[in-house]
Design a protein around this nucleic acid. Structure first.
Lengths: 244, 244
DNA sequence: AAAAACAGGTTGTCAGACAACATGGAGACA
DNA sequence: TGTCTCCATGTTGTCTGACAACCTGTTTTT
């Protein structure tokens, strides 16, 4: 694996069109039950070929955002028809929305911790201890250790999700964590560098580890909730998004 | 709205191809990093036009299952690149998988209840009381009331998700509940008709309502967890799926 | 009045062409 | 021998045009 990541490629036209259309639906510009313009008309409006529009609309259909009928047209579906959960860019544009997605993560991670307390192995504990020590030692490296610290923290909680023994919890958290880490990367880096609360954060992790070690379901769940609730506040404060 | 639903239409070829390809990826027949056959080759294998394959692959790209590079080919992505959470058909094929998706639902609904206890309005309580009464009275109607009972139960918990004040919890639960209700419909109907535990189930709902009424976050969370854990067992037992 | 046929419009699929990108190999040159 | 450039080949991304299949509303036939 290269130490440099491949430069990101331009999004395809289908990427652009599907993003614009789903945005219009999710923000209410196109209401449930409303008919989309015809494919030909969309192709003209976006200045692309009809096949590009079809690829984009195919994505929306797959997500349950749109329902098409041959010969009639495509219609915006009711929200209850949704068949995929995606982390919308809107999550990272307003403070309240950010707190809500972080709250969802807190709930599921808390659930994972409770389950991990019931199902964890000695190997899980060993791995978590190692990750904890990595978090600890990377703090001593100052700014240079920030990357390592964030990686160790991520590994710690990822292991908890695995120890939950629930595939879907694990997958969902993987998706959530990856996206949140990506969107809030610079924020998290700044927070990890604040020395005035780093020992407090470490003790939050330690409380999680100890609760899982002694297989105390409720304590594990509460410890994660405590840490993640504070972490969410810290992230939202640092991100400094508009309020509404 | 007609009292009869429109007959379901045949899935499109793109529906079929995307379902088959994603199945191959999710079941490990195509491993992360592995290259997919070329679009032309897939078109020939599936006996469809290349544009159909492109529409199907466009969906997989949108889900983060596949990453394509112009001029090179499409590759199965690492699981961490996933950008959507979908409820796979696999959830309903094996007992353990069913219990896991139900457990995920339990966790999030429990979280929603805790938040609802903090944020609920008098109108929320009023609505939940009405739904509770509907559950109660529909039980007296015997088999004829089963539909009403399930609707009232769904409305009760949907209101809790709304009262949580968290858009993403609400959306995620809407997706989960809709799908689970659809897949386990006949199972849930049979369970709703078992009179020997119906009063016990009603008291589980009442415990949820009372905890939210008195704004006791932990009691609400625990009451939902209690009900949903038992309900998951009942559903899984009745569904009688293979073990592995 | 009811049923059948027709016209027009839209989505679903197909086929073919070319642009844009990527990779590997051959040849030229220092 | 090592490095650089160019070319050939292969693949995805986009475009165009055509027709099948479906749907709806109107007109014609019974």
């Amino acid at each position: 694996m290269d130490s440099f990541t491949r430069l990101s490629r331009r999004p395809s036209l289908a990427d652009d069109v599907s993003q614009k259309l789903s945005r219009m639906i999710l923000e209410g510009d196109l209401a449930a039950g409303e008919q989309l313009p015809t494919e030909q008309s969309l192709a003209e409006s976006f200045g692309v070929a009809r096949t590009v529009v079809r690829e984009a609309v195919s994505r929306l259909k797959h997500d349950g955002l749109v329902d098409s009928r041959q010969g009639v047209g495509a219609f915006v579906a009711e929200p209850s028809a949704r068949s995929a959960f995606r982390i919308s860019p809107a999550c990272f544009e307003k403070r309240q929305k950010l707190l809500e997605i972080l709250q969802l993560r807190t709930g599921i991670t808390s659930e994972a911790a409770g389950l991990a307390a019931l199902h964890r192995s000695d190997a899980d504990i060993g791995f978590m201890e190692k990750s904890y020590r990595n978090m600890e030692s990377s703090l001593l490296a100052g700014d240079e250790g920030t990357e390592k610290h964030l990686l160790a923290e991520r590994a710690f909680y990822q292991r908890i999700a695995e120890a939950s023994g629930n595939q879907y919890i694990k997958e969902f958290l993987s998706m959530l964590d990856t996206r949140i880490d990506m969107e809030l990367r610079s924020v998290a880096i700044k927070n990890a560098r604040v020395t005035e609360w780093s020992s407090e954060v470490l003790s939050e992790h330690m409380a999680v580890l100890e609760a899982i070690r002694r297989q105390d379901e409720n304590a594990a769940s509460q410890a994660v909730r405590y840490h993640y609730t504070l972490a969410a506040q810290r992230l939202a404060d640092r991100a400094d998004l508009a309020d509404t």
